[in-house]
Amino acid sequence: MAQAAALVVAEPILRLRGIGRRFGGLHAVRDVDLDVARGERRAILGPNGAGKTTLFNVISGDYPPTSGTIEFLGEDVTGLPPRTRAKLGMGRTYQKSRLFLGLSVEDNLYLAVLGVKSGHMRPVIVPARDRALRERARELTAAVGLEGREATLVGSLSHGEQRQLEVGMARAANPQLMMLDEPASGLSRGERVALTDLLLKLDPAITLILIEHDMDVALRVAQRVTMMHEGRVIVEGTPDEIRANQTVHDLYLGRGFQPDE
């Protein structure tokens, strides 16, 4: 850990200290310290149930942590609700898509753009203001490869298209920190390649944290990798270090993890 901290030169955009989250007797995340630098691409790996999604939920504010602190952009956000964190510059996707199924693709993205702006309660259509929001929504529709589907109800999109939209929802507000929870899950090989390209082309100023089971996607996109198991961070390093790491091999080959400190 000391070594990892030394590599992070600038003030990190995200800093977790002693983060824990319990569900009743279950310790889903325990004692996680994590520093992510501005503009970094970080992958979080780990078997099912390792606590990766729970860690995202804690960072985004969907679940408050049961212990520890979260700093974002140098500010303690541990007690802030998700909407405030979104306005500070966090954006995320969900492992199981959370989309507005009764609305069109464009309206979904419209809401994602409007979220961090003012005027949620505006009961009138003001063409001058809505045009800009609509244009941005249509731009995003094209950017995630759904051009021509603007008016389609999201409930009738295919799984792959919903996953594409899910990424668009997280990008819409131009977040400084983007967290993607298994964006490639359920995608075909071709769709995975397209997604990887999309992630590689992302504005380098955006910080990206990516949970991904697909090692090809994760290790190509990431600069650093954090490996979780049973709620803890067990290894952190560059993709090459991770590839060479025996523990990682053991876990992914299913031999189980025996801590040998």
């Binding site: 969907d62 964190r85 979104a86 989309l99 309206d107 994602a112």
Partner: peptide, 23 residues
């Protein structure tokens, strides 16, 4: 309107709406 679309977002997925910045 923005008010009405926001309401429909809240209907479909309040958790997502909160993480997009809505109260």
């Amino acid at each position: 309107t923005p008010f009405g679309l926001t309401l429909q977002g809240v209907r479909d997925d309040p958790v997502r709406m909160a993480s997009l910045g809505y109260n």
